[in-house]
Amino acid sequence: MPEEIKAGCARPTGGPVGEDPQTAPPAGEGPRKEAKVMVKVGGKAPDFTAPAYLKGKFVQAKLSDYLGKWVVLCFYPGDFTFV
């Protein structure tokens, strides 16, 4: 499902998809404003795209490509952290 992307020196990017531009986090420099939190149980999971490493390939993944399946979305502090 996710599309393969070429590895270049420019870091691939992703981000929220299809949200109200007024609530979008500012792109670019300047002090970062608290982004509006839009998640609650029973509410729609905000769609996003994100570059990913998947079984030997670099791909661009999109949450809404997984509609029809159960998804476990996990965040963690960083690679090589311990637990």
């Binding site: 992703g14 981000g15 929220p16 949200e19 986090p25 970062r32 608290e34 982004a35 509006k36 939190v37 839009m38 998640v39 999971a45 905000p46 996003f48 994100a50 949450l63 997984y66 159960w70 998804v71 476990v72 979305l73 996990c74 965040f75 963690y76 502090p77 960083g78």
Partner: peptide, 23 residues
């Protein structure tokens, strides 16, 4: 940017908390 929308990004630490969402 995605973590901010999901409420798990800590801008002071520059990392994301251990958030797990069932969709």
């Amino acid at each position: 940017r995605v973590g901010s929308v999901y409420g798990v990004y800590d801008p002071d630490a520059g990392v994301e908390m251990r958030g797990r969402f069932l969709i």
